[in-house]
Amino acid sequence: MASKPRVRVPKKAKAGEIITIKSLISHKMETGQRKDKKSGEKIPRKIINKFVCTFNGKVVFSADWHPAVSANPYMSFSYKVMESGEFEFTWTDDDGKTVSKKAKIMVS
């Protein structure tokens, strides 16, 4: 999972404003249902099964993904901004490896 994820968070917002956060990461999301065309053997499942968003260290949004989530998973969701701080987004693979990305927001 050596991929750089993308997140879109507004740089600034007003206190009480509900913002939309978008995220995208490249990953095959191998379902475990496919067979190798040549060998005929099942390709083992390998997906990102967990996506977590924290704000100033506290979990504010998360998702459990199953193999029915498309390759290169996209997720958008909302957040009500009350104070300046930092988001951290973490994607966890079936093999336990994680990828993270941070984004700051200023409240005016």
């Binding site: 991929s3 750089k4 993308r6 879109r8 978008k22 995208l24 990461i25 490249s26 290169n72 996209y74």
Partner: peptide
């Protein structure tokens, strides 16, 4: 541009 998954490859290409 953000939602377009092809842009993940554009970014990889830049790297």
């Amino acid at each position: 541009d953000f939602e377009n998954p092809g842009m993940l490859w554009v970014e990889h290409g830049e790297e």
